[in-house]
């Protein structure tokens, strides 16, 4: 598929039972190959995959007992919703008489009891997604794999389905591995996130820790926006950071008029002045782009009443707490 270049070079990770783990990375980072190996459609040239201590690297997908929700769902277009849900039960040898109540219960659980006789093409995107989830869960596999589960949905539906997936995870307690390039999807759904880059793990942590304490410049930029403070005007010189790069998140930066009273905690803050280049109003927040020396810094400010708005071209003062500065590896 990818020729002689290894798509995944180093991936060593342990998933805890019942955990929701997301593999997050840009396209080409090796996340899909990783999922294909977990699903049993590709086998690793080196290394092993263990489930509950047993090696499955040589076990084909049909022997693995996993539920998979595919990107764009892969519902069987020639079978009704009910027959789609019966398929995994039938393959596991469940008798027809025992299949019916299981299907019925699952349909009810995903609020599709009235849709059993429909063909997949007669369902909306969100309904198809729920059928796909139901089909992956119905045979009660210990592991659930999700491939870009929300990628095919529009924004509103996506938020609704996030809730649905979280609910199902809480209820069924499946060890879930999700692959996505969408940082929001990863942050909202996961217990832990693995950020991948060029076939290797860049960082593995809880969503909050990843966002708040990114280890590398790549992670900082991939999850959210980052102001990298690597110029002398911003107090940067090589000696004081020993090869690391200081970074502050845009929402940790305060913007104020140049002549406003100095911040109280002056000793613990860093203060610079700059010129507003751009102001973008985005509903709940305002985003400023401020030029300081030869750098542009981004500031996110929650919209509040009585707030001063700065027009492009004007001078402003920016300040942030030293404690909010993170040191990143290159």
């Amino acid at each position: 598929m990818y020729g002689p270049i290894a798509a995944v070079t180093e991936l060593s990770l342990t998933v805890r039972r019942g955990e929701f783990l997301t593999i997050l990375g840009p396209s080409g980072s090796g996340k899909t190959t990783a999922l294909m190996m977990l699903a049993g459609f590709e086998s690793p040239t080196k290394g092993d995959i263990l489930i509950s201590g047993k090696s499955v690297a040589a076990v084909p997908s049909y022997g693995r007992d996993q539920g998979i929700v595919f990107q764009s769902y892969a519902l069987f277009p020639h079978l009704t919703v009910r027959r789609n849900l019966e398929f995994p039960l039938e393959m596991r040898g469940v008798k027809a008489s025992e299949r019916a109540p299981l299907v019925e219960r699952m349909l009810k659980r995903v609020h599709l009891d009235a849709f059993g006789e429909r063909m997949p093409s007669q369902l909306s995107g969100g309904q198809q997604q729920r059928v796909a989830l139901a089909r992956a869960l119905i045979a009660d596999p210990p592991i659930l794999l999700l491939d870009e589960p929300l990628g095919a949905l529009d924004r509103n539906l996506r938020e609704q389905m996030q809730g649905e997936i979280k609910g199902l995870h809480r209820e069924f307690q499946k060890t879930t591995i999700c692959v996505t390039h969408d940082q929001e999807e990863a942050l909202t759904l996961s217990d832990r996130i693995v950020v991948m880059r060029a076939g290797k793990i860049e960082q593995l942590d809880t969503p909050e820790a990843l966002y708040d304490r990114p280890a590398t410049r790549f992670v900082a930029n991939f999850l959210g926006e980052a102001n990298v403070l690597d110029s002398p005007e911003l107090g940067f010189n090589d000696q004081n950071f020993r090869g690391k790069v200081p970074m502050v998140r845009p929402e940790r930066v305060r913007i104020s008029a140049v002549n406003s009273p100095a911040p109280a905690e002056l000793g613990q803050s860093q203060v610079v002045t700059g010129i507003v280049e751009e102001m973008i109003y985005a509903g709940p927040l305002r985003k400023y782009q401020v030029r300081v020396g030869d750098k542009s810094l981004i500031v996110r400010q929650h919209v509040a009443s009585g707030q001063e708005v700065f027009a492009p071209g004007g001078s402003v003062r920016l300040d942030w707490l030293r404690a909010d500065v993170r040191l990143l590896d290159e």
């Binding site: 049909y62 693995r64 539920g67 998979i68 595919f70 764009s72 892969a74 069987f76 398929f87 045979a139």
Partner: peptide, 15 residues
Amino acid sequence: DRRLEQAAKSMGARP
């Protein structure tokens, strides 16, 4: 869509 075949296999169907 080859994923349909993969989906079947992931549900325990032999090739």
